[in-house]
């Protein structure tokens, strides 16, 4: 069999904490298989060696928060055959999108001694607002098994098994008892996309919504039930303003409760 050229993969960082790209290095058991299957051509977190583009797959972490990054993502798109965004920052704007609800100039004047040195955008936005994205992998951080699944799917020319249904499906399959029904613990699971493996409810905690809104989320109905459980309007705003605050269904729901405060 002729030697097949290994796909060249690049990992790019924008405004983010690096946690998602570290998931790739966290694939301890699978790392050799990953390294055998792909040629990691650009991954500064792992190696200073850089192979020139173009790249077959670009994994993009982080959101766009500066004019410089807004230009850089265009360059990344140009050198990438497939562009896959990874994590809540890249897919929804991340926790730093909390600035989107306020006046960023005020933050700058409070935080920085010399605000004139700061060049930033009004809003933290997901990559898909700037360039065409071929696949979005959710999570804060992403699930490493889902990352391997997405890479495997792209390498084998098939659809990734990354469902957009609720966290509840994962809880029920693993046999976890519903924390909201059995203890009255507020949980975002019914409106949040599966993928984490339903970790928090397995530890008797409500879901924090790290994987962002599920398909067709009914946030209004869940909020009404949370109110019955004794959650205040203010806490509802906080619950929806997590890592995926700027994802539209969560953003709109938080704004509804902000007005009711």
């Amino acid at each position: 069999m002729a030697k097949v050229r290994k796909p060249k993969v690049a990992v790019w960082k924008f405004a983010s904490c690096d946690g998602c790209q570290l998931s790739l290095l966290d694939c301890e058991d699978e790392l050799l298989a990953v390294a055998g299957a792909i040629d990691i051509a650009y991954f500064l977190e792992a190696s200073r060696a850089v192979v020139e583009g173009p790249y077959d797959i670009s994994l993009v972490e982080g959101s766009i928060t500066t004019p410089h990054d807004a230009e850089r993502i265009q360059e990344v798109r140009r050198v990438s055959k497939f562009l896959i965004t990874i994590g809540a920052c890249a897919t929804a704007g991340g926790i730093q999108a909390l600035r989107n609800f306020k006046d960023v100039k005020e933050f700058i004047s409070i935080v920085y001694a010399k605000p004139a040195y700061i060049s930033t955008l009004e809003k933290s936005t997901p990559i898909a607002e700037h360039v065409k994205v071929d696949f979005e992998l959710r999570g804060c951080p992403i699930n490493k098994y889902q990352l391997i699944e997405v890479i495997s799917a792209f390498l084998n020319g098939r659809k990734p098994n990354v469902p957009s249904y609720s966290v509840c499906m994962e809880c029920k399959r693993r046999g976890t008892v519903c924390v909201m029904t059995a203890y009255g613990t507020p949980c975002l699971g019914p409106v949040t996309q599966a993928g984490c493996g339903a970790i928090c409810p397995a530890y008797h905690r409500g879901c924090y919504g790290c994987f962002g809104p599920k398909e067709t989320p009914n946030t209004a109905s869940l909020s009404a039930w949370w109110r019955k459980l004794g959650v205040t309007e203010q806490d509802l705003v906080r619950a929806f303003r997590g890592f995926n605050a700027y994802a539209e269904p969560f953003r709109k729901e938080s704004e509804v409760h902000e007005q009711k405060q």
């Binding site: 509840c168 499906m169 029920k172 699971g189 019914p190 067709t216 989320p217 209004a220 109905s221």
Partner: peptide, 11 residues
Amino acid sequence: TRCLNCANCTM
């Protein structure tokens, strides 16, 4: 308006 389409009932 109330259904979360979360699938718990079917599970």
